[in-house]
Simulated scan of single mutants.
Amino acid sequence: MLGNGRCEATCIDGVKRLCHIRGKMHKKVWIAAGDIILVGLRDYQDDKADVILKYMPDEARLLKAYGELPENIRLNEGITGIDDDDEGPDDDYIEFEDEDIDKI
């Protein structure tokens, strides 16, 4: 993010472009480093583009699964706090006994 509704994006073709965030997205959709965005290229300026859409994480995973994104793109790169040492899907659940529920 550069401020004043602008950001710098690295496109799939390897070119860094100065992007303008459209007014409809301004202060409604927050873009962070590592997010997958859709940009509209300008015919008259190759080094500038307009941000059209921000893909949600599940949408970005679907794009990668469908082959729309290259294999070298890493998703969730800018998100911090994700533990890589997860031990399994059962870590997200907490079991309560009947006595615990009665106390609540």
Rank of each mutant, 00 (worst) to 15 (best):
E97R: 14
K48S: 12
D50T: 13
D90N: 10
L41N: 09
L2K: 05
D85K: 14
E99N: 12
C7H: 00
D102W: 12
Y66T: 09
I82R: 11
I94A: 11
K48E: 14
T10R: 05
T80R: 07
R42T: 08
N72F: 08
C11R: 06
E8Y: 00
E68W: 06
G23Q: 05
K48W: 07
I52W: 11
C11S: 05
F96G: 02
I73M: 07
G34E: 04
G14S: 04
D98N: 15
L38Q: 11
L75A: 07
I52E: 09
G3C: 01
I12Q: 09
D90C: 05
H20F: 10
D47I: 04
D47W: 02
N72D: 15
I31L: 13
W30V: 08
F96C: 08
D98P: 12
K48R: 15
R61L: 04
Q45A: 12
D43N: 11
M25D: 03
G34D: 05
R74A: 09
D92K: 11
C7A: 08
G23P: 05
E99L: 09
I21M: 09
R6G: 01
D35C: 06
E95H: 12
I101W: 15
I79F: 08
D50R: 11
E95M: 10
P57C: 02
G5M: 02
T10S: 03
I52S: 03
V39M: 13
K24W: 03
I94G: 03
P70E: 08
K54Y: 06
E8N: 02
I73F: 06
L69K: 09
I36Q: 03
D98W: 14
L62P: 00
I31M: 09
Y93E: 08
K24L: 09
N76T: 04
I12V: 14
K16Q: 07
E77V: 03
M25T: 01
L38P: 00
R6V: 03
A65F: 09
G40L: 12
C11W: 03
R22Y: 02
G81T: 12
I36T: 12
R61I: 07
D35A: 03
I36S: 02
I52A: 06
A9R: 00
V51G: 03
D85P: 01
L38W: 01
L63M: 14
P57L: 05
E71I: 10
E87L: 13
T80G: 01
R42N: 11
R22W: 02
R22N: 04
T10D: 00
